[in-house]
């Protein structure tokens, strides 16, 4: 039987001092516990951080917001300040999972949500992400739901999160408490491409604890929105999704960030595609640029067209074009 230690962290310092060797921090557990049951995750010990004072949503002086690591997805989605100023984040959260899961899942946990690739989740199958250098079952296998951007010959797994797509479009900052104290990681630098080390998904170092995520203040005249496309109406991971944050001042597009989910090995953003529009180009050109490197697998070629419709629709709505 797989046994593991369990400890409820009493303070932030204590959590950060637990050491890195084989430990995982436990928030809502909606991914971690599931994967432990499947023997995909086999931590030596869990450090429960839900009792730490990390559950606050704090409005910042500059109009931004700091979201504690253990804020539950449902609390975040229904927070008035978030709904008013960061609607894209609320919409993305509510498009994900089910009410029950959202009541458990945490902000930091969602940032680290792992792929739904069926070959990753079944230890009897080859998976480079689960067991480095064991091969990739998804390439040439069942890959309808998997990535068309950012893939490598070793991994085509999709980042499944909705929240992360919104965080990417909002330009979030991840607060991390590590061995050398606190540091901040821009969400654009947080996720790694799989390359030939798909087991490494983020820049976090062993033992690093995410304490919060902060969002910058958005200028007046900013519109945000999230759109998720999938087979059924609810409770399914995205086939393609898009988050758009656009600021229009005096009829001119002054600031634009957008990202897509369901199609990339990480929440996918391409600043060059944003520049196409900021420089007066067309939505059609921006979308084509965004998807130009798409590399479909045996079953997911339709995602190129689906992603195109998804992003086009979102941008049209945001830019009222």
């Amino acid at each position: 039987m797989q046994s593991f230690g369990y400890k409820k962290a009493g303070s932030l310092d204590e959590a950060a001092r637990t050491g890195a060797d084989g430990i995982k921090f436990l928030g809502g557990g909606t991914t971690l516990i599931d994967l432990m049951k499947l023997e995909v995750e086999r931590p030596k010990a869990l450090v429960d951080i839900t009792a730490l004072p990390l559950a606050a949503i704090e409005k910042q002086k500059d109009g931004g917001v700091k979201i504690g690591a253990t804020v539950r997805n449902s609390d975040l989605a229904h927070n008035d300040y978030i709904k008013k100023n960061y609607a894209v984040l609320s919409q993305a959260l509510l498009a994900g999972a089910s009410a029950q899961l959202r009541n458990k899942a945490t902000t930091a946990g969602n940032l680290l949500q792992r792929t739904r690739c069926t070959y990753f989740r079944d230890p009897s199958r080859a998976c480079n992400k689960r067991v480095p250098k064991s091969g990739c079952g998804a390439i040439g296998g069942h890959n309808r739901n998997l990535a068309i951007l950012g893939t490598s010959n070793d991994c085509i797994a999709t980042n499944p999160s909705d929240m992360n797509v919104a965080m990417m479009a909002l330009g979030a900052r991840v607060h991390v408490l590590g061995e050398k104290g606190e540091r901040f990681i821009n969400i654009d630098e947080f996720y790694l491409l799989p390359g030939n080390t798909p087991e490494k998904e983020t820049v976090l170092q062993p033992g690093d604890l995410i304490t919060a995520v902060s969002l910058p203040a958005l200028p007046a005249g900013t519109v945000t929105s999230y759109l998720k496309l999938r087979d059924r109406a609810s409770y399914e991971f995205a086939l393609a999704s898009s988050a758009v944050v656009a600021s229009i001042q005096g009829g001119k597009l002054t600031r634009l960030r957008f990202a897509m989910g369901g199609i990339g090995t990480k929440p996918w953003r391409n600043p060059e595609a944003e520049k196409v529009l900021l420089n007066g180009g067309t939505i059609q050109d921006a979308v084509a640029f965004f998807l130009k490197d798409a590399k479909p697998q045996s079953e997911n070629g339709f995602k190129v067209e689906l992603a195109k419709r998804c992003l086009t629709h979102s941008l049209k709505n945001a830019l009222k074009a």
Binding site: R116, T118, R232, S234, Y235, E236
Partner: peptide
Amino acid sequence: ADYVMPVHAD
């Protein structure tokens, strides 16, 4: 999760 069936919303 992966064998898609209708949910209430469908």
